[in-house]
Structures are given as structure tokens and as C-alpha cells.
Design a protein around this nucleic acid. Structure first.
Lengths: 240, 240
DNA sequence: TTTTCGTAATTGGTATGACCTCCTACCAAT
DNA sequence: ATTGGTAGGAGGTCATACCAATTACGAAAA
């Protein structure tokens, strides 16, 4: 056995995690373990740093990172609180990846066409009575909306609730991440002319979900998105 | 007009962005504009801080955030360089959302079943000769793989390349983000028994893409993923 | 008693300087 | 040509001081 062979079996040492990394991991773990407690307010920076035995610099860098990950909200003068905005990082990535609006919308619709029929299908398989009731309430809200913003929020809420019912956290997170990207295009797809049709589409989807008809739900969702894609293709005057 | 009506039209002031936010935006913009220059090395922290007219504290917090977003890599003692790891944030979110392994795999497969047939379909519509040639090379690599790790990398590369060919950055990013989640499950799906079958499935997908048969590509991919899901359901002994 | 105003206290944001620790480049010795 | 040692560069951490936004509280006015 030569000395080279001995050296080749030595595994490279892994560098020790920095204090910032350690504090991040610690805080993330605590956030998960105590996620239902109180109003989510965290102690002040200075106190947390002291308790963890690190400098305020380390604590600040750690909290900044967790803010970036969508786990914390930091407010100047108010304090830090726990939030659940895990879609935020992907929204950020997508904005960086696709700065050009037209191409962003094209890819967005293509992506939605891939995932939302499956979401609708799963929702139809899994919906309970309370779920259907909630969908109807949102649907009524969208029907009764007085302003465009109200209609947009109801529309997004409808889709979001389907994702929740579908029970797949990954798809739900993806849809949530896409929501901000798609907000502007809804000005076209559910403007005065398109809104009634969107409402009709939602009705078909809702009925299929209530009836636990997975195939019909997927089909209705696909139809809804195909029509929206067509709208956007024929009305290129969306504002930036 | 009452004074209340006047007050109701006053829009709340938006707080000025902090220096950290401004530096983040500035650096992100510069990273995008100069993304092809050199080895991606950024100047030292102290120098960047001086040039931007801010303290090193602000610069550090900003770079930490950009690291968290997958745009930078920071190495103690070596410096900071630009990277493209936009999938990193979503990978992180997913790990936080789904700590439990079995449920993570179930949802992962469900998600892949939604998006990968569409990726295969688009790839079939858009593939050029060079794309097909690349897929064949990867395929040959997977066929000839001596170790499990080689096979896994080739498998992931095959799927990743289909996503690139498909030309949808959103779907590509999502698939990239899922790759780490799915690495362990491939120990089952392309272990010694399953590998030949996975290779056969890839062959069918590759042939459909080469023939620009979108429907066949989507169908072959769906079949591939359904079989993988079945494998995982019958072999629950995946290691943590 | 209720409402409004002013101020102190709290809490995050920024700057500075010092020092520690890891990594790289370079020179001297073998 | 190779190896070992060291200086210098670059990120990591700490402490302190001060700035800026928000909240809480007490006093004054209605």
C-alpha cells in the first residue's frame, strides 16, 4: 500500500459554517417549531443577538437572509415578525430571468396551462363540502365586484384556493409565485368584456369540482386558460 | 365636498428604500448587464463599498441578500463572484415547506407529472438538429454509466436539456429547483433494475422529440413518470 | 370624557474602526 | 521541480456611536 493510496482515501474537510449560517438555521428551525404562536413578533435585534451570543452584525445579516427567503418581515422602527411568503424568492428569480414583458407573459401562460389543469383535477378529487363553499363565496365576490382590483383579487383567490384544495404544496407555491407576474395581464383578461366570460369559466370549473368530476375540471380550466391566452394575443396593448 | 372626502383621496407615502435595497438593485442590474464578462469575480467588499459611497455594513448585507437569491457566491478569504443559481431560492423554500420525505416525494412526482409532459411536448415542437444531437450524447452517457452517480447526473441532464429546448424559462427554473429534491428518489427509479427501463423510456422520448411528434413525446414522458411513481410506491425503503 | 398633540422610548438603519480567520501568491530552501 | 513558510488580501465578527422610523404615553384642549 503506497502512501498515495492512503492520501486518496482522506475526505476533504468541510469548512465550518459561519455564525450567520448557524443563526439562520437556528432561527428557521424556531420559526417552524413556533409558527402558530402569537402575532409572530420576534424580539428586538439587540436582544436576540445577546441571547444567541453573537454580535448584532451577525444577527442582522441572518435576519436579512431570512427576509429574502420570505420567512421574516423587517420594519424600520417597528420590529421583525414572522411571515409566510415562501413564494417571494421565486417571484424575484422570475422577475430577474424575464425582464421583457411580452415574453414573460407568453411563458407565464404556457406554464399556467401546464400546471393549473392538474391543480383543478386534483381539487376535484379532493374537495370537501367546506372547500366548495369557500369557492362559491369567492366566486360570488368576483361576480359582485365593483372595481377592477376587487375582481383581480377574487380571481387570484379562486385559483389560489383550488391550489390549496389540490393539496400539493409545490404546485401551490409555484402558482403563488406566478401570481404577481400575472397580475397585470388580468387587466386584459378580466377587463369589462372579459370578466363575464372569466366568471362563466370559473362557474364551469367550480361545478366540476363540486361534482368531483376531475376530467371536466381539468378540461374547463384548460379552456379558461386557452381563452385567456387568446385574449392576450389579440390585445397586445397591455401597459408596462 | 366634506373634509373626509378630501382625506380619502390622499395616497399614503411610500417609505424611501433603504441603502441596502438600493445597493441590491444596483448590483443586480450590473450583474445582468455584465453577465458575460470575465470570470465573474466582483471587487473586494471594501472597494465596492467605497465606490458605491456606502459603509461596508450596507454592502455586506446587500451581498448576503443577493447570495440568498442565487446571484452571488461568497467565499471566505477568496472573494465574491457572480453565479447563476436562480433555482436556489425555490429549492430552499421547498425544503422548508416539505420537511417530511415521503410526502415530499409524493408531491414532487405529482408536480413533475404536471409539467414534464408539457416540457417534452414543447421540446418536440422546437428541437433543432443540434439539440437532438446533444440529447443523444447525454443518452449515450447514461447508457454507458459505470456508477449510479453518473447515471443520476445523466438522467437529470437529459430532463434539464429537454427543458432548455422547450424554451420556457419558468418551467426550466421550476424543474431545476426540483432536481435536488428528486435526487434521492432516483436511487430507486434508476437503480440496477430500473435503469434499463428508464433508458428505454428516454429512448422513446428522444425519438419522439427527434421526429417532432409533440403528442408522442408528451405521452412517452407521462408514461416514464407514471412508472417511476409506481416504483416508488412499491419500494418504500428509500433512505433519508 | 374624549380627542389631539407633543415627546420620550423603542427599534431598525448606517457608519466606523479594530481584530480574527481563511485563502492566495510569492519567495526561499531542498 | 517540489515543498514549506509567510506576508498580504479578502471575508467574518465584534463593539460603539449615531441616525431615522415607529410606537407608547402623558398632558393639554375640546
Amino acid at each position: 500500500m503506497t502512501s498515495y493510496q492512503f492520501i486518496m482515501t482522506i475526505v476533504p474537510l468541510k469548512s465550518a459554517p459561519s455564525l450567520v449560517e448557524q443563526v439562520c438555521a437556528r432561527l428557521a428551525r424556531q420559526l417552524r417549531d413556533e409558527m402558530d404562536s402569537g402575532d409572530g413578533r420576534l424580539p428586538p435585534e439587540r436582544l436576540m443577538a445577546e441571547r444567541l451570543g453573537v454580535s448584532r452584525t451577525v444577527l442582522r445579516e441572518a435576519t436579512k437572509r431570512l427576509e429574502s427567503q420570505g420567512l421574516l418581515e423587517i420594519r424600520h422602527g417597528s420590529g421583525i415578525r414572522a411571515v409566510n411568503r415562501l413564494h417571494k424568492p421565486l417571484s424575484g428569480s422570475l422577475s430577474l430571468l424575464l425582464p421583457e414583458m411580452a415574453e414573460r407573459l407568453r411563458q407565464l401562460n404556457e406554464t399556467r396551462a401546464a400546471i393549473e389543469p392538474e391543480i383543478a383535477r386534483q381539487a376535484a378529487l379532493k374537495a370537501k363540502a367546506a372547500d366548495v363553499k369557500q369557492l362559491r363565496a369567492i366566486h360570488a365576490r368576483m361576480t359582485a365586484a365593483d372595481t377592477h382590483d376587487e375582481a383581480v383579487e377574487a380571481d387570484i383567490d379562486f385559483h389560489r384556493t383550488l391550489a390549496r384544495i389540490a393539496g400539493n404544496e409545490i404546485l401551490k407555491l409555484m402558482l403563488e409565485s406566478l401570481a404577481d407576474l400575472g397580475r397585470e395581464s388580468r387587466r386584459v383578461t378580466i377587463g369589462n368584456v372579459g370578466r363575464q366570460r372569466a366568471i362563466d369559466h370559473h362557474t364551469a370549473i367550480l361545478n366540476a369540482v363540486a361534482a368531483h368530476d376531475a376530467a371536466a375540471a381539468a378540461k374547463a380550466m384548460k379552456h379558461h386558460l386557452d381563452e385567456a391566452t387568446r385574449d392576450l394575443a389579440t390585445k397586445p396593448k397591455t401597459k408596462r
